[in-house]
Write a protein that binds this DNA or RNA. Structure first.
Lengths: 349, 349
DNA sequence: CTGAAAGCGCTTACAG
DNA sequence: CTGAAAGCGCTTACAG
């Protein structure tokens, strides 16, 4: 037998047509049991492995969905003996938790998951300007992309062919859907806690506005402060995954002698870096300044002090994205809920 | 324009043949620049997304590799406020770390990664006895499978078509390769430490022998004890990921009043469960009994007491597997090294 | 219940 | 530098 037997080889060995082989696998009820057994026996004898590309091409769908993540290009060495919550990626971050949700949901449904990653600028040598995301998109029935991981025009283009869910998006690419999380209520609750329980009046927000989701957080922050008659200064720029930007933001506040009483960060990832930067500069948290995060990643529970944050249902975000893609749900009945998690960094016990 | 424009549509709009469209993307140097621009413009205008299935079929390869994991079917809820190292899967486990290595290596190479998971028994309804692993295998150029995740006959079959790396394997499926880790040296060093530094003589091993890798650990354990004139009782059965088996193993020792001075576990995952079980029964670790693990997962550094273990280069395992698949390396120059990590659970400071 | 045949959307010698 | 055409390995109406 030649290498890589095909359906033709199986058909020949079983003494049937390729149509029958195909039916024996795909629609067993349509084939006489004895025929079916003969086909399966022939397939086993030949070591037949169906070619999923051919199947996908013929069927018009692939049975797989894609997840396109932001490529932090993080190269993690093996876990150190002494762990700190800021050893980036030692503990699962937001995107990792969402990915896990996607993975689990796919497993349950028997869907294969195709993983890819890039930045909006990423283009492979052979791609000639065509971003890698289309490479993933071309082989799946639906695509989940983290906002900012793929160029929005590429997503718009892809969305014309297959369903696309852009996480954290809402605004970027046309034709895509998103998973809605109640950022607003979460942030409002957090700020109200800082205002009314800890009686803070001097706030500063650190974060970026790369995605609609981040915008929603800042908007809720500013609105809540405004409601309490507290001025909201413009946000200090910082981006999750770019530690130096967060350190610079904190450094600027210190240098300008403009340290507020609360630093509200747009993500836990940034808040943990801020915690580090403040410690490095001998600033007591929460004594001198309170710090808060957003997301509820594992590391937030391990820092010293523990990080007060808004927990969002990260795995549920991933699962919901898959369900939107499969058509199992056509829209969310309600935004996914968030919850305030109080720890020491805001001044709580 | 109809839905899902194809190369034919692009060709027509650009006024060229489909061959030229194909060349414009795949072999730019072969096409006149002006032609190429026309093609790219037409593609952009139509929102053309190449069909990877068709490409894979025509080319005979897909540009993707597959990772088939053991399906623990673990459904993790959101992180709790109070974390303990035994909140299974809150922290990355062995397989998660290996997967990360695989992911990173794939990103670097521009390879897409197809994820699937199952147990040796898993077969989808539509698969009619054909395990899902072949479904993944049919759409990739190479497959990495965790030992025990897929039936070995299926792997043997697949290995006849595409390169297969079975992690933890060595013995299971014919025609597959594996990534070799120096389990022997690691375990020997651990047992020698327990023998000579802590002067222990009463040992018990907890673990299973599902894979060659686990066998190697037990063999090294038994051999090292034998070398010191210490009797090695048969291992008590326990399996990582099946917490109840580990608890039962510990429970049996307690019930039989046969608690040794050291419990050597085949994995960290089991050792952490053992730690829990012992604590639940009021047994002091390391006071009454020392406990050790193997792997060096993150959670091992977070338990109380900290878990003494043998660190293996999990991410490197994943990366090596990818390199073996791509043909970048044809064989390992040496087994991947392991390192003894001493913490409190063995009695060290 | 089974088969002949078209078609899925690409790539790639082979000509020109 | 460009095109006509075969072929990759399946699925699926359509006949029988």
């Amino acid at each position: 037998m030649g290498r890589k037997p095909t359906m033709y080889d199986v058909a020949e060995r079983a003494g049937v047509s390729i149509a029958t082989v195909s039916f024996a696998f795909a629609q067993p009820g349509r084939v006489r049991p004895s025929t079916r057994e003969a086909v399966l026996a022939a397939a086993a004898a030949l070591g037949y492995v169906p070619n999923a590309n051919a199947r996908g091409l013929a069927r018009g769908r692939t049975g797989a969905i894609g997840l396109y993540a932001f490529d932090y290009l993080l190269d993690l060495t093996e876990p150190a003996d002494v762990l700190t919550p800021n050893d980036a990626r030692l503990f699962p971050q937001y995107a990792d938790e969402v990915q896990r949700g996607v993975e689990l949901e796919c497993r349950v449904r028997g869907l294969a998951l195709m993983l890819g990653a890039g930045t909006p600028q990423t283009a492979l040598p052979g791609d000639l300007g065509v971003p890698r995301v289309v490479d993933i998109a071309g082989r799946v029935d639906g695509l989940i992309a983290f906002a900012g991981a793929a160029p929005s025009d590429a997503l718009t283009r892809i969305a014309g062919r297959i369903p696309v869910v852009e996480l954290g998006g809402m605004s970027t690419a046309e034709g895509t859907r998103t998973v809605v999380v109640d950022n607003t209520t979460g942030m409002r609750g957090l700020v109200e806690h800082l205002l009314h329980v800890h009686r803070h009046r001097e706030f500063r927000y650190i974060g970026d506005s790369r995605t609609a989701e981040f915008d929603a957080r800042y908007a809720a922050y500013a609105a809540t402060l405004a409601g309490a008659g507290v001025a909201a200064l413009p946000p200090a720029h910082s981006a999750p995954g770019a530690e130096e930007t967060t350190r610079a933001a904190v450094g600027d506040l210190l240098a300008a002698d403009a340290l507020p009483h609360v630093i509200v960060c747009s993500t836990d990832q940034e808040a943990l870096v801020a915690l580090d930067a403040l410690r490095d500069n001998g600033v007591a948290v929460p004594g001198r300044v309170a710090v808060t995060g957003f997301d509820g990643i594992v590391a937030a529970g391990l820092s010293t002090p523990g990080l007060t944050t808004v927990q969002q249902p990260m795995q549920a975000v991933g699962r919901t994205a898959v369900r939107l893609l499969t058509g199992e749900i056509t829209e969310q009945s309600a935004p996914l809920p968030t919850a305030l998690v109080l720890r020491q960094s805001c001044g709580c016990a």
